[in-house]
Design a binder for these strands. Sequence first.
DNA 1: ATGCTATTTGCAATAATGTTGCAATTGAAT
DNA 2: ATTCAATTGCAACATTATTGCAAATAGCAT
Lengths: 135, 135
Amino acid sequence: MKPVDILNSHNLKRTSCREGIIDVVMKASQALSEIEIRERLTGNYDRTTFYRSFKTLEEYKIIHKIVVDNQLVKYALDNTVTHKNKHAHFYCNECNTVKCMENIPVQKYQLPDGYSDIETEVLIKGTCAHCKMED
Amino acid sequence: MKPVDILNSHNLKRTSCREGIIDVVMKASQALSEIEIRERLTGNYDRTTFYRSFKTLEEYKIIHKIVVDNQLVKYALDNTVTHKNKHAHFYCNECNTVKCMENIPVQKYQLPDGYSDIETEVLIKGTCAHCKMED
DNA sequence: ATGCTATTTGCAATAATGTTGCAATTGAAT
DNA sequence: ATTCAATTGCAACATTATTGCAAATAGCAT
């Protein structure tokens, strides 16, 4: 499925910023930050437009946001598009990358009476395979 | 264990800001934001001092930080002090509170070859028992 | 192709959050 | 009481994010 088709299927207007963002995160093997996405885009966009595009794409569950320690924000293609399950994310302390662990599903936790859950985020922090080899 | 004793046991100087923060989070049933902690303190402190105090207390594992959606930051007493296990956190979308779910331990996830984990964060989002009743 | 309209963009201003350097102050050990 | 390293407060600055509004644009109808 192409970026344009994804936008169309959600009745979202095809703008180069949105299309570009989807294209970039689709090609990425890891979650990308705003800056990393900007670097990979051909066009140049205002920060505001960028933020609004992320917001829209998130609302329509085309991408999802992963936050590490309240400053590092990364975006990845959402499962709704990839047709995979909710998964855990891995953050490497050394290379500062975030990766969707498609093979690590997020379990359903048993909550106390009266609590109901909507979604669960699992972030595993550590050292990735690549950085481990370099040690 | 009193706030002062906690500071002493870590060879940290006893300052009213640190002591106050520990005192407040010890008494709280939920994780508190910077503002919520400030409101409960008697003294008035500069933002910088506040941030530095949080940082120090975090480094010494006296408190821990829980981040929701990259802007909401809350602090709670750490397990090192409470002598409990690593636990999941619950965020209520309605009342914006964060609670340590002491009874929901964080499981150890099986990672792909070469990956090693240091810590895992689990944040469950939903509606808390109190808000559910009000619906 | 042309025009219309709602949506989207870019810009300026503003807000919130967090960090750094440095001088003044304070804790606690002697 | 004296001393000294640690801590605080202040000012400045950096980053991240949001809002209002006019200009530009996408997509639709003609």
